[in-house]
């Protein structure tokens, strides 16, 4: 199927994009388009106008400071993945990026676009929560920061207002303890279940985020507590966490299978994070 009619504007600045976004026409931001264009190609509705931000220079920046990674809204997953600093200092992000589609998709798809699209099966919303990321959004009225955990407003929906757009995401330094795994039927498919985790024993931070199996990403708080408590009760905590989950059953997996997979992933990923955290502690 071909896309329905819409107009296309290539914005040259954030200001231009914001002005267009706030006029009376129904507009959507086009970043990489790897989620949006498939939807348009199924004619599942569509905006009157797409505002392409791919050419806005300032949105294409990757900035690494002492303790923050800032990715502009037009930074592709591929560029992030090929950035030596990202790979070295934010290995959780890099590991997750490897699982997004295939190279051809990552070459266009953007990190921020995935956050703004908020597909419940996608990796990056979960990773952003695990990393404690903040999304910087702007409108003509100004800018604000939204914690990744506050961004989601349910599947395919965010707390952004109609005239707001994501301009960047900021990731604080990643602790040495981390883990990421997902399970998909084929490489590159959306995960049937996935877990992203960071663990910093010194500052008592553990964030374990589940995705893919049941609506939007969710923290596995009892697994986090178990990790901080030394990790002996992880299996039990994982089982209890998954017991409380209400997973999706669809043509790709039964709800019960998603439970099984999520339990395994929680245990495995928590284990990975513990190993890395303790290796760091022994340095």
């Amino acid at each position: 199927m071909k896309p329905p009619p819409f107009d296309y504007v290539a914005a040259t600045s954030v200001e231009e994009a914001l002005a267009l976004l706030s006029d009376e026409r129904d507009s959507r931001i086009l970043a990489g388009g790897q989620s949006l264009i498939p939807i348009l190609n199924l004619r599942l509705g569509g905006p009157e106008r797409l505002i392409d931000i791919g050419r806005v220079k300032e949105l294409n920046d990757i900035e690494v400071t002492e303790n923050v990674l800032r990715l502009g809204a037009a930074v592709t997953q591929r560029r992030a993945l090929r950035d030596a600093d990202v790979v070295e200092r934010w290995p959780l992000l890099a590991a997750a990026l490897e699982h997004i589609g295939h190279a051809e998709i990552r070459n266009r798809g953007t990190v921020c676009g995935s956050l703004a699209h908020n597909d419940p099966q996608a990796e990056l919303p979960a990773v952003a929560i695990a990393l404690g990321a903040e999304v910087v959004v702007r409108s003509e009225g100004g800018s604000r920061r939204i914690a990744a955990e506050e961004l989601s407003n349910g599947p395919f929906s965010t707390s952004l207002a109609d005239d707001e757009m994501v301009v960047s995401v900021e990731l604080p330094d990643q602790p040495a303890g981390w883990g990421f795994q997902e399970f998909a039927v084929r490489p590159g498919d959306f995960a049937l279940a996935g877990v992203a985790c960071v663990l910093d024993l010194a500052s008592s931070v553990a964030r374990v985020v589940m995705f893919g199996a049941s609506g939007c990403p969710k923290r596995a708080t009892s697994v986090e507590s178990a990790l901080l408590a030394g990790g002996v009760e992880i299996e039990h905590a994982a089982e209890a966490t998954v017991e409380a989950l209400d997973p999706t059953g669809d043509i790709h997996a039964s709800a019960a299978s998603r439970r099984t997979l999520m339990t395994k992933l929680l245990i495995d990923v928590a284990g990975e994070a513990q190993l890395r955290a303790s290796a760091e502690a022994q340095k």
């Binding site: 790897q34 264009i37 498939p38 589609g101 051809e104 070459n107």
Partner: peptide, 22 residues
């Protein structure tokens, strides 16, 4: 839909799905 790869071309040196670009 970007799934099958038959339409892959190189844009500025990077392989992309030409069904998912305008």
């Amino acid at each position: 839909q970007g799934s099958c790869g038959a339409c892959t071309v190189l844009v500025d040196g990077a392989a992309v799905r030409s069904c998912l670009m305008l």
